[in-house]
Amino acid sequence: MHDFVEITPLGGGAPRVQEINGIVLSEVTDRALASVAARLGQEDEAKALVSGFIEAPAPDAGRLSGSAKSAFWTGPDQWMVEAPIETHEDLAAELSEKAASRASVTEQTDGWCRFDLEGGDLVAVFEILCPVDLRKGQKGDATRTSIDHLGCFVLRRETDLVSVIGPRSSAGSLFHALETAVRAVR
């Protein structure tokens, strides 16, 4: 095992967790990410690759599926696969090997930061963050949209648990936007 010490997207040694207005806002760093994009004409095969890895159907457009290992749709014939970092640190290499020429796999773990919001009035929080309508949405929705000028994925993991995955370099700004919105809830 190498001897480098990691820091979190917020720059700390450990993920930040904060509870405000009954909502737990936490930095999540224990997931590896890799993008999987189907090679031309290999759409079904790529889908099968994702599905086989996450042990659940590959998600349709705008959706998230799986549990211990999961994936969400990011574009036509393109998914982001998530897996525990402890067991899948080099997730991209692992998937790439499985993919052969069926799909293009790219390491994405460190391209992103992830903040989970759980409990409380999440509808009220998200309606001042982005156009994603949590009143109408369901568990399993995965939407890419803009939060505070940042392109983010909004993943409804449970009815009252939402992940926001945004660009890692802006983790501080994104966390600040989320925290401000949580505080503003009436």
Partner: peptide
Amino acid sequence: PNMDVQLISTTEAWA
């Protein structure tokens, strides 16, 4: 549209 090519940004993934 018929080229076999896939793109994704990795700007932030690598220091």
